[in-house]
Design a protein around this nucleic acid. Structure first.
Lengths: 188, 188
DNA sequence: CAGAACATGTAAGTTGTTACATGATTTT
DNA sequence: AAAATCATGTAACAACTTACATGTTCTG
C-alpha cells in the first residue's frame, strides 16, 4: 500500500470526510490530486479499511462521507509502528532557480525572492489563524496527546516554523543581491 | 522539459561533472535516481545543451565529464526568468505518522521523534561543515552574487536553517508525549 | 455573466522508482 | 569475506499529473 493511503486513513481517524475535503486537508503534509484520491478511497473501501455513507445535499452535489473502520485503524497503527522510515522527497522548482540565480541579473533574482516572500507571508497568516482556532477549541486541549487534533496541531506548528524560517532566510539573502561587489579579474 | 533537466544544467553551470557526481550533489535540493539522470543527460547532449568528454581512469571505471554549452546556459536562464512558479511538493512519510501519532502509545511516539532527531543532528553537522568549507574558499567570497558558489551557498544556508528549526520543533514537541494528562470522560 | 466552490469520477500520458546488469578497488 | 564507493546503463513497473467529463449554486 502506498503512503498516500495511510495519509487518508490518518485523516479519517480524526473525523469522517468526503474525498473532496480530504484533498484539501491533505495539502498540509502531502500532495495529491483528486484523480489519485477518489480511486484510492474506492480501493480502501473494497479492502474494508474505510466505509462510506452517501449524503444527499441540496444546492450542492451529493457526497460520500468516508469513515475509517476498526481494521483501518489497525492497519494504520501497524504501519506507523512497523514501517521503516523511507527517505523523504522535496521537489521545489524555486530551489533549482536559486541554485543558478547567479546567471540572471540581480534585479531578476531579487524579484524572485520578493515574489516568494509574499506567498510565504500569506501562508504564514493562514497557518497562524488556524493554529489559533485549534488552541481556542473547547474540550481536550490540542497540546494533549489524547486530543484527536494532536497530530494535526503538531504539523501546523512545524509548518509555521518552517515558513517563518524561510522568510527569515529570504530577508537574510535579499541584501546580497546588489549589482555585484566583485572586482573584474582584469584590473585588481 | 522537466524540472530535473534544469537542475542538472544549473549544476553544470557551476562546474563540469559526471552523472554520478550530479546524482550526489542533487540531493541538496532535488531527488532523483541515477536511472533517471543518465538517460536525461544523454537527451540533453542530443539537444546540444550539454557536451561530454570521456575520461579514462585507472582503478576506477571510466566516466563522462559533462559540461554545459552556451545554448544550455541560455535555455536555463530563459527558464529561470520566464517559467511561472509551479507549486512544490513535499512527501515525507514521517509527517503522515505524526498526523496519526495519537493512535500509538506515547512511548512509540517519542521513539519516532528521537529517531528523527538523531538523523537531523547528523545532517546538521554535515551541512555546517560544508558551509564552513565554502566560506573559507579563496577567491570571490561565496556571499557575493558573482561567485559560482553563490546559489549553492544560499541553498545550504536555507537547508541548515530548516534542519535547525525542525530540531527545535522536535524539542518543543517531545515534552508533550507524556502518558496523557486528559481525564477519562466517565468520572469527572 | 464569468469564475470559483462544491463534488466525483475516468483516461491518457508523464515522471519517478525498483530491479536487473556489470565490474574493479577500497574499506570494514 | 562482505560491504561500500566509483561508474554507467536499461527494462519493467508504480506513482503521479493533466486533461476530459458533468452539473448546481454562490459570489464578484
Amino acid at each position: 500500500m502506498i503512503a498516500l493511503a495511510y495519509a487518508l486513513l490518518g485523516m479519517l481517524a480524526r473525523k469522517p470526510c468526503s474525498g473532496y475535503e480530504l484533498m484539501k486537508l491533505l495539502k498540509l503534509f502531502w500532495q495529491a490530486q483528486h484523480s489519485q484520491i477518489y480511486p484510492l478511497l474506492a480501493k480502501l473501501e473494497k479492502e474494508g479499511l474505510v466505509t462510506f455513507e452517501l449524503i444527499g445535499q441540496t444546492g450542492k452535489p451529493d457526497k460520500k462521507l468516508y469513515s475509517i473502520t476498526d481494521s483501518g485503524i489497525d492497519a494504520l497503527r501497524e504501519w506507523i509502528r512497523e514501517q521503516p522510515p523511507t527517505d523523504s522527497t522535496e521537489r521545489d522548482e524555486f530551489l533549482i532557480k536559486i541554485y543558478a540565480i547567479g546567471l540572471v541579473d540581480p534585479e531578476a533574482g531579487r524579484d524572485l525572492f520578493l515574489e516568494r516572500r509574499e506567498a510565504l507571508v500569506a501562508r504564514l497568516h493562514r497557518l497562524e489563524e488556524s493554529i489559533k482556532l485549534m488552541e481556542e477549541e473547547p474540550g481536550i486541549p490540542v497540546t494533549d496527546i489524547a486530543s484527536k487534533q494532536f497530530g494535526r496541531y503538531l504539523l501546523h506548528q512545524r509548518k509555521v516554523r518552517m515558513v517563518r524560517e524561510e522568510i527569515d532566510w529570504l530577508d537574510w539573502s535579499l541584501p546580497l543581491f546588489k549589482p555585484s561587489s566583485a572586482q573584474t579579474p582584469d584590473h585588481p
